[in-house]
């Protein structure tokens, strides 16, 4: 790991000031940052430790008139174990508890989870100068590539999948991310926070240099609102998911309204399956409707040479997740 300058800001304002220059990177739980720096994949000249920030609101979980506010420095363990998250924001609780291991969740934070870098092993190998690192090409797109974990939707020119399952859950819950930066605070809908490689190659979200996520806000669930998240991984517990789905909607008398279906680990961003949502909106959540939604969600899938298995697998994830709302 290259040495760097280490800054301990007192406040969000100081953190933003310290981060407002090239080569400066924020550090929260460090579960992605520190191994990434050890592998020379994440390179920082200056690391700003956000955990020293003492401002209210950047850590902990608060219920407000609007709903729920989660500080970006809240650990994943705190979120997964929080009774209100478990009872009213099930998709988030179910996603959080799947993140890494107890050790990762004890140190890792929500903000860090949302802003972690991709796991594509070409990206993670310092010897592959891939598109995501400013290089000339995406190695995962080659026919003989080890691309079994890469994108089947929304890929190109890079074929990473977004690594954060909490991101999919928060898109399903229509959360708002609050960001602080050199130009002041701004609020970004979870839907708009993550961007495709066609828009930005070197990062996976809209954050500008010097900006950090300070807290995440989720509206209180309407009467009858339900949500669920599930994923599948090669090793239950610990591993990143290879496919998953976060779903939400208001379910009354068996009819679902305002559904959101967000696919995990299959696209460079949490992937809204809007056609599938439209197909079931206002309809009874029957077995046939759920099956049709699963088909519609993957209708546009374009697998790479070694990840065709993700298509049927993800259909199953969608079906099982929707069945939990019925």
């Amino acid at each position: 790991m290259k040495n760097f300058e280490y800054v301990r800001p007192d406040s969000v304002a100081q953190a933003v000031q310290a981060l407002d220059r090239r080569g400066a990177m924020p550090l929260a739980g460090g579960m992605d940052m520190v191994p990434g720096m050890q592998d020379n994949v994440i390179i920082a000249d200056r690391v700003v430790n956000l955990k020293s920030i003492r401002d209210d609101g950047v850590r902990g979980i608060r219920e407000t008139d609007y709903g729920l506010v989660i500080g970006a420095l809240t650990t994943l363990t705190e979120i997964a174990e929080h009774p209100v998250v478990q009872s009213h924001y099930a998709a988030l609780a179910e996603a959080t508890v799947e993140v890494g291991s107890p050790q990762i969740r004890n140190a890792g934070t929500l903000g860090g989870n949302l802003c972690q870098r991709p796991r594509c092993w070409y990206f993670r190998n310092e010897h592959y100068n891939c598109l995501k690192k400013g290089g000339p090409r995406c190695f995962a797109a080659d026919d003989d590539a080890e691309n079994q974990y890469n994108a089947i939707l929304g890929g190109g020119p890079a074929y990473i999948v977004h690594p954060s399952n909490c991101a999919s859950a928060l898109v399903a819950l229509d959360a708002t991310f609050h960001v602080a930066g050199p130009d002041g605070p701004r609020a970004v809908h979870a839907d708009d926070f993550f961007v495709l490689p066609t828009e930005r190659l070197l990062q996976e979200n809209v954050l500008r240099q010097g900006e950090i996520v300070t807290h995440v806000e989720i509206a209180a669930p309407a009467d009858g609102a339900k949500s669920a998240f599930l994923e599948t991984a090669e090793r239950a517990g610990f591993d990143w998911g290879i496919s998953g789905a976060a779903v939400s909607g208001v379910v009354r008398d068996g009819v679902i309204n305002g559904p959101r279906i967000v696919l995990y680990a299959v696209a460079p961003i949490p992937w809204r399956a809007r056609d599938a949502e439209a197909l079931i909106d206002g309809k009874p959540l029957t077995e046939d409707a759920i099956r049709a939604a699963g088909e519609a969600a993957l209708a546009g899938a374009e697998p790479l040479s070694n990840n065709g298995y993700k298509v049927p697998l993800t259909k199953t994830m969608v079906r099982r997740a929707l069945a939990r709302l019925a």
């Binding site: 520190v34 107890p102 050790q103 004890n106």
Partner: peptide, 18 residues
């Protein structure tokens, strides 16, 4: 693994200063 404030964490991925 070590305990940090009673909870297990990975000492390899936590900066000493943190």
């Amino acid at each position: 693994s070590v305990l940090l404030d009673g909870k297990p964490v990975y000492a390899c991925s936590i900066l000493a200063m943190d």
